[in-house]
């Protein structure tokens, strides 16, 4: 399956990419919501999973989630927020915006695998 990692931190993108690589995903990357949306719209075949940071320049993660959910092409894409925002209100906001799961930083690769397993996206 194909996946995208959206985070303005290069180090974080590498960490997430490595975990997804190990699960057999083909991974693309974007540094903010706007770049992600452009890449996704250009892509002839939509990805199955997007891991999204919250705080990013140009377009933040919650805005990306909202725009993707409003776009008929992306309704079945699984969206997982991976963020330092850890308040209940923010989690509720992300879930209401259409995120399927929410992972709080810091995390271990096991956490990513467990969450993807819950979504039926990892063996």
């Amino acid at each position: 399956m194909r996946a995208m990692v959206v985070d303005d931190s290069r180090a974080m993108r590498l960490i997430l990419r490595k975990t997804l690589d190990e699960l057999g995903y083909e991974v693309s990357q974007a540094a903010n919501g706007r770049e992600a949306l452009e890449l996704l719209e250009r892509d002839p075949e939509p990805v199955g999973l997007v891991l999204v940071d919250w705080n990013m320049p140009e377009m933040n993660g919650i805005e990306l989630v909202r725009r993707m959910r409003a776009h008929p092409r992306f309704t079945s894409v699984r969206l997982v927020m991976v963020t330092t925002e850890t308040q209940t209100e923010q989690m509720v906001e992300a879930l209401e915006a259409g995120a399927d799961e929410y992972i709080m930083k810091p995390f271990t690769s096991e956490v990513i695998v467990e969450k993807l397993r819950m979504l039926g996206l990892a063996a």
Partner: peptide
């Protein structure tokens, strides 16, 4: 709470 718990249940 990151481990195994769906975010929906956490909130």
């Amino acid at each position: 709470v990151n481990r195994g718990l769906p975010a929906r249940y956490l909130v």
